[in-house]
Design a protein around this nucleic acid. Sequence first.
RNA 1: GGAGAGGUACCCAAGUGGCUAUAAGGGGACGGUUUGCUAAACCGUUAGUGGUCGCAAGGCCAGCGAGGGUUCGAAUCCCUCCCUCUCCGCCA
Length: 408
Amino acid sequence: MIDPKRLNHAEDLLDELNRRGDCTAVVEKAHAAYHNWKSALQAFETLKADQNAATPKRKPTDVEKNRLAELSDAVKTAKRFVDDAEQAYRTALLYVPNIPDPKIPTGADASGNTVFRTPSRPVPEFAFEPQTHDSILERLNWIDTTRTARINGSRFVTYCGLGARLKRALIQFMLDHNTHAGYHELSPPVLVNRTSLTGTGQLPKFDADLFHCTDTDYWLSPTAEVQLTNYYQGELIAEASLPIKLTGYTPCFRKEAGSYGRDTKGLIRLHQFDKVELVQLVKPETSDAALLELLNTACGILDALELPYQVVTLCSGDLGFSASKTYDIEVWLPAQNTYRELSSCSLFTDFQARRANIRYRGDSNTFVHTINGSGLAIDRTIAAIIENYQLADGSVSIPKCLDRYMSV
RNA sequence: GGAGAGGUACCCAAGUGGCUAUAAGGGGACGGUUUGCUAAACCGUUAGUGGUCGCAAGGCCAGCGAGGGUUCGAAUCCCUCCCUCUCCGCCA
């Protein structure tokens, strides 16, 4: 949520927001609803002050009672107006995206993204035609999509034998890496409530992407960002405990509605996947540096795995709804002959903190800035390892840093 | 899932329809007096916050788990929900 006071200068706000694409409609709606609420509030508060002044300390006489009853009716009517107006204004505000960082490039879509860090190492050269990760994994019996399709349908995977061990090893390795970088490990539930999803910005706008339990208001979390960021929901944090750095492994669930036909094979786009997440809650003045630190932690995992990657800065038009600045880490996939997103590291400024009401006790009580990124997506990392580490004889080797996690 | 008990400030807790919650009383914390130094004793401080109006000083409104309702008036009565605790059932 943006600072509602910015609606007082809606033209300036629009100048900044329209770098994403046309936001006029949502801003004008929020702007109108905001002023409607304020005038309703002022009318109510005046009446309420009258009522408070007129209410006697003892039982009122019948004459007084008539006048008090009138006042009471007027207050109730005014209150109803305020409540409706407030509901409308808050809802409208939930649909206004975050303000893009002034320093990021302006662009309409992914073609406007710029390279922030050039490839970390040369891409591997193969003396043979590199195979796709799914064909290799299937042949090695490290995954079984045929049986999984019977149990779950498409966009699910079962890891088998060494494949399952590799997944477990990667989770372990990444969590160790992140805790060594100073992140506190949490292992949260994967069912979350509506309030938390609203706090981090998935709801109300993006409910079509989420799995929702039909008989309760529980949702399957699409990313541990939800659980880790909302861990401090509603809290007033002591200044001395900032920055808070959290990491956690969870399964993640996404409907992937609207991506029919895209990445149907392999591990790139699944309804359920595994991810190790990095989250930071920081003081506003340190958030730019903290984003880079978090990015470096995520990149450090790929360095250790010796996988080639590049980092791009998302342009204004490609930015997610809640983010003000995002760096995508893209790993090289030889069979696709391209870099694919493996982690998205974003600064949300106070946008999520306002929605989730996370503040810290400083000179005044201020909203923290939130930052998160994958560190890393497990299944896509497996895809990258398999494709980059494949050998001429059809087998694959395993990154050296995983040896101690893969041994029996 | 069933039966019961709770949720008031940093913690415990009194308040059960009107006397603006300066929220009684403890505890803890902090400051002071006293002291060679500690402890004790005594004195004091410990409501913070959100919103709104205002250049400001300051005014006003809302806050007793959350949301509704009853009432001229609700921490207090009623309803729904959340959470904690005890017992039973079920289960990993």
